[in-house]
Nucleic acid binder design. Structure first.
Length: 281
DNA sequence: ATGGTAGATCCTCTA
């Protein structure tokens, strides 16, 4: 492929849909509103043979990298452009469908393509002590393994995107109440440290925070456990969904958005999509 | 201090 044929703009969306089959009309709405080139999904909750592949191909996404299982987890990358080197990765010795990656062409990358990683980090249960809560121990081990993999197998010169539901809100402004949330899983110091180590592995750039200052509250998730539109009025949110890039793509960052409206699309996912625009400098 | 809701599914688990 000559460089003239490569796409000069790449819009990448990520969304924890909490059941892709239930959220199909929402996906159509997101596509109409945002026109992404690549869509990363988490919590698809469906085996690959039952994934709504035909409908999404009809809507413009014939290239699909799927890693799904029954009832739980499940990730997918959908693309307008061909996907190469699709990898389904397992962590902590579990085939639990939390990571899929693929390469997509992009003129703004020094390598002519971007390696996109779609990740769903374990939530970690309720008790923030790995000694008594195996789910939290699993979450920390998972973050550690992903960190070690990027350290060993990739470098900061590789043009990459790491996006998905990381289930960690790292900054004080990523939660509605930093002090209260510091004892609540998603915002405990030990998780934040593990996420920071993963971020350091290949010097990931937190793209959202290059557009929204770290001092400003920014959320992508609001609990279901509130009545009606209380999620909106009380705004007790967290930033659990992230879109990270490596340095070779830094100059291509052209825009970022949390599609907050989508949290109100009935029946909603508890997560809102995030969208990054990369434009060839 | 507690429980609040949602989704898939085997009637409980995970979030």
């Amino acid at each position: 492929m000559s460089s003239a044929a490569l796409p000069s703009v790449l819009r990448i969306a990520s969304w924890n849909v909490n059941s892709v089959r239930l959220r199909l009309p929402h996906l159509e709405r997101l596509i109409r509103a945002q026109d992404p080139d690549v869509i990363c999904l988490q919590e698809t909750k469906v085996i690959d043979v039952l994934f709504p592949a035909g409908v999404l191909a009809d809507w413009g996404y014939p290239y699909q990298a799927l890693s799904g299982m029954k009832s739980y987890n499940g990730v997918a990358i959908l693309s307008r452009w061909p996907l190469e080197d699709v990898q389904r990765v397992s962590w902590c010795g579990r085939d639990d469908c939390r990571h899929v990656s693929a390469r997509v062409a992009f003129a703004g990358s020094p390598q002519g393509s971007v390696e996109v990683h779609c990740l769903y980090v374990p939530a970690g249960g309720d008790i923030p002590d790995p000694e008594v809560n195996p789910k939290f121990a699993h979450k920390l081990a998972f973050l550690r393994e992903v960190e070690q993999w990027f350290l060993a197998c990739r470098g900061y010169h590789d043009a990459m995107v790491l996006t998905g539901d990381f289930n960690v809100a790292p900054l004080p402004s990523d939660v509605w109440d930093h002090k209260k949330m510091s004892r609540v899983i998603t915002h405990t110091p030990v998780e934040i440290l593990h996420l920071q180590r993963l971020q350091d592995s290949v010097r990931w750039i937190d793209s959202a925070r290059t557009f929204v200052p770290p001092s400003e509250p920014l959320f992508t998730w609001w609990s279901y456990r509130q009545q009606g539109d209380a999620w909106q009025t009380s705004n007790r949110g967290r930033r659990l969904d992230h879109l990270w890039i490596t340095e070779p793509l830094a100059a291509a960052q052209a825009g970022f958005e949390v599609v907050r409206d989508a949290r109100g699309w009935e029946p909603p996912s508890d997560h809102a999509p995030v969208v990054l625009t990369l434009r060839t400098p």
